[in-house]
């Protein structure tokens, strides 16, 4: 593509670490907890600047979540950091019972989500976290698509009173929201590309793939609308339903199991308000595997080409 310019790429975990550091002065009650992964979750950036406010809990995620609950119960705003597999997976019950049930002001910054973890393979590729976190009453669930959105989401989580789950990725991803009128609000989706033939609802790295797919579809005369959903819970049902009314067909894209994540949330909303055919792109009830992030995203049909092909077959 001739018009393609050099696009800046940043991993959203990097955005997370940077945002924590940038917001530390403004939010003196902010503390950051880690389970021996500060270098990987990028909270090491915060740790370097505010060592006395960084608490390494060692390799014990369940206890870390409990400590965060205790900190929040006495007025701190703890960010619990680990890989999604351990923060949402291993510590699920601690998140549910020690954070969710008492509705404490704990933020969970989960990095290395999805298959873009890459080489580590299936044990570390969490494709279930959105589903798990969505089921906890009162939990806000966010999955930013790029650096701009990830930083905005961290700030929004800090300003919000209550438990929040934030999903970040390991791999560097293109910055797609760098525009002057960018505005972030918990629970609000954005139409990042207007169209009339099909709606592609995407989250996280899926947004960039959806935009790429929309360009390919355009060449074939298919005008796709792309909706970026950062907040999976509470879901911007109004936006999704209004787009579905316009296009009559919906495709969802997420680096997550098609069971319980964005696709399921979108189906829930559409079933209730405006049923239309839906095609869910994501991990089709399978585990991931080792490989480079790019190769895995391609293999599981989550890149622009994969999304394009699936949408084309669907419509």
């Amino acid at each position: 593509m001739a018009e393609e310019k050099i696009i800046k790429k940043v991993a959203t975990r990097e955005s997370y670490g940077n945002a924590l550091k940038e917001l530390a002065e403004e939010f003196p009650n902010l503390v950051v907890l880690d389970a021996d992964l500060a270098a990987a979750t990028k909270t090491g950036i915060f740790k370097k600047a505010y060592p006395e406010r960084h608490i390494d809990c060692g390799i014990a995620e369940c206890n870390m979540v409990g400590i965060a609950a205790g900190l929040a119960a006495v007025g701190k705003i703890p960010f619990v950091s680990s890989f999604a597999m351990f923060a949402a997976g291993r510590a699920f019950e601690q998140v549910r019972n020690s954070v969710g049930y008492p509705h404490l002001n704990v933020k969970i910054g989960a990095t290395h989500a999805g298959i873009s973890v890459g080489e580590d393979g299936a044990t570390h590729q969490c494709n279930e976290d959105l589903a798990l976190m969505r089921t906890i009453p009162g939990m806000v669930v966010m999955c930013p698509s790029d650096d701009v959105e990830a930083r905005a989401a961290v700030r929004a989580a800090l300003e919000y009173e209550g438990p929040v789950y934030l999903r970040f990725g390991r791999a560097a991803v293109p910055v797609i929201n760098d525009r002057p009128d960018y505005h972030f609000e918990i629970g609000k989706g954005t139409i990042v590309r207007e169209g009339s033939d099909v709606t592609i609802v995407a989250t996280g790295i899926g947004v960039d793939s959806a935009l790429g797919a929309a360009k390919m579809l355009e060449k074939e005369g298919v005008n796709a609308e792309v909706v970026n959903i950062c907040t999976i819970k509470p879901l911007d049902e109004e936006l999704i339903v209004s787009s579905a009314k316009k296009t009559g067909k919906v495709v969802t894209v997420e680096e997550h199991s098609v069971i319980g994540g964005l696709g399921s949330a979108v189906c829930d909303a559409l079933c209730k308000h405006y049923p239309v055919p839906v095609c869910k792109i994501g991990m089709q009830d399978v585990f991931g595997e080792s490989g480079s992030a790019a190769a895995l995203i391609e293999k599981y049909g989550l890149d622009a080409k994969g999304v394009y092909q699936t949408v084309k077959a669907f419509i």
Binding site: N63, M64, I67, A69, G70, A73, Q94, S98, P102
Partner: peptide
Amino acid sequence: CIHIAGVDMSSGSLGQGISAAVGMALAA
């Protein structure tokens, strides 16, 4: 349940209360 007067933390799933207490002590 934390919403009961005098109760400082919801608890009951065994093993979790002590972690919350540790967090409270750490905050102090």
